[in-house]
Design a protein around this nucleic acid. Structure first.
Lengths: 360, 360
DNA sequence: ACATTATAGCGAATCGTTTCAATAAAACAA
DNA sequence: TTGTTTTATTGAAACGATTCGCTATAATGT
């Protein structure tokens, strides 16, 4: 193994040799350590030039072996295929970049085993923080134990854990649903159908609470025959099929409605398809409102009115939380869990319209 | 700094102490190193138990400081917001996971500066391989120099570089466009409008070549008045607006057409919107075909007929290439650049139909 | 002229692992 | 019995960077 021949890695000692100074000095100069204040400019220049001509990159492993810091956080996604994820990832990435962190991306594919395996790998990497993007189901108790074990600053986006020992960033589902329904009501709709989310999801419950609260506030009657439930499913992309089926189911009940409020945009897409198939024009004969405002929603014809989750902001908020926790830990301070609930915003597009014959 | 109190990291020496053996032995056992063949089972058991009860994770930094391997590859995306990216990322992730690599995700936001900064950070991390997902414009020459400098196995998805020193995975745009046009032609369409892609994109050219070849093969006439070009733009999500504008432009020319072939799905969405606005039914009065088969395409009403890029497979192929290159490098073999061109597949959905009055 | 302080740079220890070479006991062959 | 091999374990030297403490010269104060 004549490795010296094609010596590929250039170390700090190479720079030292070339510049004529010691490794210590090189380190001090290149990092602008406190001691660098005593180093005359020309020495610095010589060292910097040497580093540049050699193409020297400090070895992060050696570096973090000493400093215990490695400027890496793990980002665990439950299903990157879900369009809901992407903007959040963008938000995370952007904030992380600003703080010059790098992210290791892990995709659990909604599988518990995969989640755990990835978690282990991330722990081995000594990530400084962990952001979990729990867009979909479950996420139970004892993986928390795993996280706690590592004592790594963690924040969960999209779910609030029962034990609030772990920080979280969620959206105000209840208020969002409230405003969506309020929008339909304001347009004169009274016979409103609902496709509710899977019962297992906490956001389903919260959104429904918003609906109920609005109904109570205004005396709107919620007709049980106009309510359908999405089955508990693991695959978010099936949401559209389920939305389709549930809407057909609703139509089959022959109970007229002038508006439909879907659990989320995917469901709304399915509803749109079912309505089109039944010859019902949107928004002419029926208004449809979704939730989330995933990317395709604005593309649709008609563009979907929906409740926008501030996804980039959620990602950014998560980064703020972990970053604070990391610096707190670095300074040996302790920091409690933080729970942020962001407001959702109604976005009115083309799929909702005043009920015909009535003026709003 | 009483750090010993809350000693957070458990090292191999702790395991050694607890099990009563030396650090060397522990290392050998835990890694199943060749020497482990001499270690009696009960010793192994003792060590393993100690490791488990202490919750020992080997420190990857120390590890790779010696071994020069860190099982990490960089994945550089030009814009994670682009729905085209997601399935490719999924393909990459999945293959990487199988090979038990972890990925560091970097998003260049289509900005050169950001690309370079990230590249530097990745190089510092001593990533073993690099996958670049060049979905969108440019990607010029001298960042290649940067990559070459690091001598890191690299593969580019979505573009073929002029100098073929860097491996690439692309889709057969020409054949894909050929088959899309062939599909329209087979449905009886003769007056076909085209919204071509931005000239700067190599895929634009390739797809247009496919169109031209088909036209030549069959004698189909390409009417210049039915051809519009997307402007050179940086933002992929603007594609839909441009598609809308270009289609309106085409309609304004008053030159009738019964089918429209869009550069990609985003453009097709824009076209769909413009056609709807003009009161032209799809597919009743006009067929529309896209390219890519991004996720929303199947959701649309009508679902978009398009040419499917095998995105997961592309991601997987990229991983195979870097993985091979990495192991080759590890064994001191040299490996040349590899160029894979994957077939695209026509997906017929609802947006295309035989031209009225004619039977296909 | 001498003590003090600021300036400039270096040596060596350290971070947590892996691995080579060495040791030493047991097992075997002659 | 002696010599060789196999089995079992370990100390010490890397890997590449940071940092504390040390030296040594130069500048300053008195």
């Amino acid at each position: 193994m004549k490795r010296d021949a094609n010596k590929t890695t250039v170390t700090i000692r190479d720079v030292a040799k070339m510049s004529g100074f010691s490794a210590s000095t090189v380190s001090i100069v290149l990092n602008n350590a406190p001691l660098a204040r005593y180093i005359p400019p020309q020495t610095k220049a010589r060292i910097q030039k040497a580093a540049k001509t050699l193409g020297y990159y400090p070895n992060v492993f050696a570096k973090s072996l000493r400093s215990k810091r490695n400027h890496t956080v793990g980002v665990m996604v439950f299903d990157i295929t879900d369009p809901y994820c992407t903007p959040i990832l963008r938000g995370i990435e952007n904030s992380l970049y600003q703080a010059s962190y790098l992210q290791i991306l892990a995709d659990a594919h909604n599988e518990r085993g995969r989640f755990e395996r990835y978690l282990e790998m991330l722990l081995e990497r000594r990530i400084e923080g962990l952001i979990v993007l729990a867009n979909w189901l479950y996420l139970d108790i004892n993986l928390l134990a795993d996280i706690e074990r590592g004592k790594i600053p963690t924040v969960i986006i999209g779910r609030e854990l029962e034990s609030d020992a772990t920080s979280s960033v969620i959206v105000d589902d209840e208020a969002g649903a409230y405003s969506a329904l309020s929008h339909l009501y304001g347009l004169g709709h009274r016979k409103i159908a609902f496709v509710r989310g899977p019962k297992a999801l906490s956001s389903s419950k919260a959104r429904w609470r918003g609906v109920q609260r609005f109904a109570k506030d205004t005396g709107l009657e919620l007709d049980a025959r106009l309510i359908a439930d999405l089955p508990d499913q693991l695959n978010p992309n099936v949401g559209v099929d389920d939305g389709f089926r549930m809407t057909e189911e609703l139509l089959k009940r022959k109970r007229p409605f002038t508006a439909l409020m879907a659990y989320d945009d995917m469901t709304a897409f399915g509803a749109l398809r079912a309505l089109a198939k039944a010859g019902i024009k949107v928004p002419g004969n029926c208004s449809v409102v979704g939730f989330d405002d995933i990317n395709p929603s604005q593309l649709f014809v008609p563009a979907l009115s929906t409740v926008r989750q501030p996804m980039e902001a959620m990602g950014a908020a998560a980064v703020v939380i972990v970053n604070d926790a990391i610096t707190a830990a670095a300074e040996n301070r302790s920091s409690g869990a933080i729970h942020r609930k962001l407001a959702a915003e109604l976005v009115v597009r083309e799929s909702t319209r005043a009920v015909p014959g009535k003026s709003s």
